[in-house]
């Protein structure tokens, strides 16, 4: 079972990180980062499958496929910024974590601006 592998990887990484914190704090940080990256790489193919399913559902929506792509991109950016900011907070660097989250929000807004612009234009035409 895939969840078993992920759980095992997570527990091993957490235990190693705790042990190494006593000896050398920097190695503990690196172990935690590597564990997160490995778990993320492990679940990445499954996330690709979800995105492919979403694309298949929206297969007939030719006009709106770029908008759906924007939403999926925004979701991916949100996840990446969430993971990295949590890692930073785990090591006591909450201010860095906050900045990473802020960066994620700004990039999501920039991507979403094109969608909001088109939608606002449609709504303004509707109001005329």
């Amino acid at each position: 079972m895939e969840i078993g592998k992920i759980a095992a990887l997570g527990i091993i990484g957490a235990v190693l990180s705790v042990i190494l914190r006593e000896e050398k704090r920097s190695y503990s940080m690196l172990t935690a980062i590597m564990t997160c990256i490995l778990i993320f790489a492990f679940i990445l193919p499954y996330m690709s499958e979800i995105i492919e399913s979403i694309k298949k559902i929206g297969g007939g929506l030719n006009i709106y496929s770029e908008y759906i792509a924007v939403m999926i991109k925004a979701l991916a950016i949100a996840y990446v910024s969430m993971f990295t900011s949590q890692l930073c907070r785990d090591f006591g660097q909450s201010s860095i974590g906050d900045k990473i989250e802020l960066g994620g929000k700004v990039i999501i807004l920039i991507n979403a601006v094109s969608v909001i612009d088109d939608a606002a234009y449609s709504i303004m035409r509707f109001m005329q």
Partner: peptide, 10 residues
């Protein structure tokens, strides 16, 4: 997503 404002934005 922990940050609710990001989730709301999406």
């Amino acid at each position: 997503i922990n940050d609710r404002s990001v989730a709301e934005l999406i």
